[in-house]
Write a protein that binds this DNA or RNA. Structure first.
Lengths: 184, 184
DNA sequence: GTCTATATAATGATAGAC
DNA sequence: GTCTATCATTATATAGAC
């Protein structure tokens, strides 16, 4: 049962959701089989190297998502910087379900995650940082100021997600998004 | 082999280190046996309910540590607030090994962590928040301002730990400690 | 491309000797 | 209080039919 025909992006989206909820080690093949509606053996047809490859493909999927949904809009010089910032923050707010769900970046940093996966995680963070630095400059900030604001943006997002989930209060994340909007 | 006679606090310290590195699901009993020098069966003498109980006791241990190492010093009215802040930030800097190691709070939020454990995690964050709010007031801040600063402090610590580890650059954490020092 | 069946190793956990 | 031995269960992974 489950989805009859599952496109690759749909499958990666399911894997992303599961990895975010349970982490790399916490997510088992049985759980994946259940979530995708496929048998365990079938999963190896799509990902011959197993869970490591799934995590790797998910992170590449996320990196591509960041590219198209964050970096392209954030660099669109045709739109005023303030509007671009609001748009990107709204996208992130949806991605994190208003602060209710963890970030993959955060879940893929445990000691048992394959180094290749951590490599993509690093690239994702670097890309996001570059994006916000670029946006800061479009706001008229100096290079140094833009770097600082970009760093505080990433820290604020990740940190508020942690505190929100630990306190079971998405208000923390919500407030942080507002604060970030006023950084620039 | 390993430590010949292991005190309870030493054992909890080892468990804390391992949980921080590998997370709840990622840390296996075999790994714990190796790290403590005890046989798997011996671990059940100390923690009859197994890994769940270990995680619970570790979090209680952390909560006690926060009480004695953070909250008592942060509320010591005999010492100027500025000195108290520096002292507490230095303690946290050591606890996080200058940003190189993850926070338990962060590692105990995955979907497969027992609710009882998450309950203590929540209490730890609440305690820390109260501590920094109290300190903010001693700095002369209003109640609202102290709440905001306390929240930014917790977010800044957790967020910078994530970004530091993802980028493999403890400089992010180091800078954040300085920024927090200037919040108050 | 998905399945059933299976192999092999590791998991958390217990019994009982010392 | 620690051990060896063992348990049932689950883990990742593969073989081969359809």
């Amino acid at each position: 049962m489950g989805a009859l025909i599952l496109g690759r992006n749909e499958m990666l989206a399911i894997l992303l959701k599961e990895f975010r909820a349970l982490g790399f080690q916490g997510l088992s093949l049985s759980r994946i089989a259940e979530a995708t509606g496929l048998g365990k053996a079938s999963l190896y047809h799509h990902f011959p190297k197993g869970k490591d490859e799934m995590a790797l493909q998910v992170m590449k999927f996320v990196k591509d998502w960041i590219q198209s949904e964050i970096l392209i809009p954030i660099n669109d010089k045709e739109i005023p910087p303030k509007k671009r910032l609001s748009h990107v923050l709204k996208t992130l707010d949806q991605f994190y379900e208003k602060g209710a769900t963890a970030c993959v970046i955060e879940m893929m940093l445990a000691g048992d995650v394959p180094p290749s996966v951590k490599g993509i995680v690093k690239e994702c963070v670097e890309d996001l940082r570059e994006g916000f630095i670029s946006l800061g400059k479009d706001f008229g900030l100096s290079n140094d100021e833009a770097k600082k604001i970009a760093e505080q943006t990433l820290i604020g997002i990740q940190g508020s997600l942690i505190i929100s989930r630990s306190l079971n209060d998405v208000g923390v994340f919500k407030r942080q998004i507002k604060i970030i909007e006023n950084y620039f």
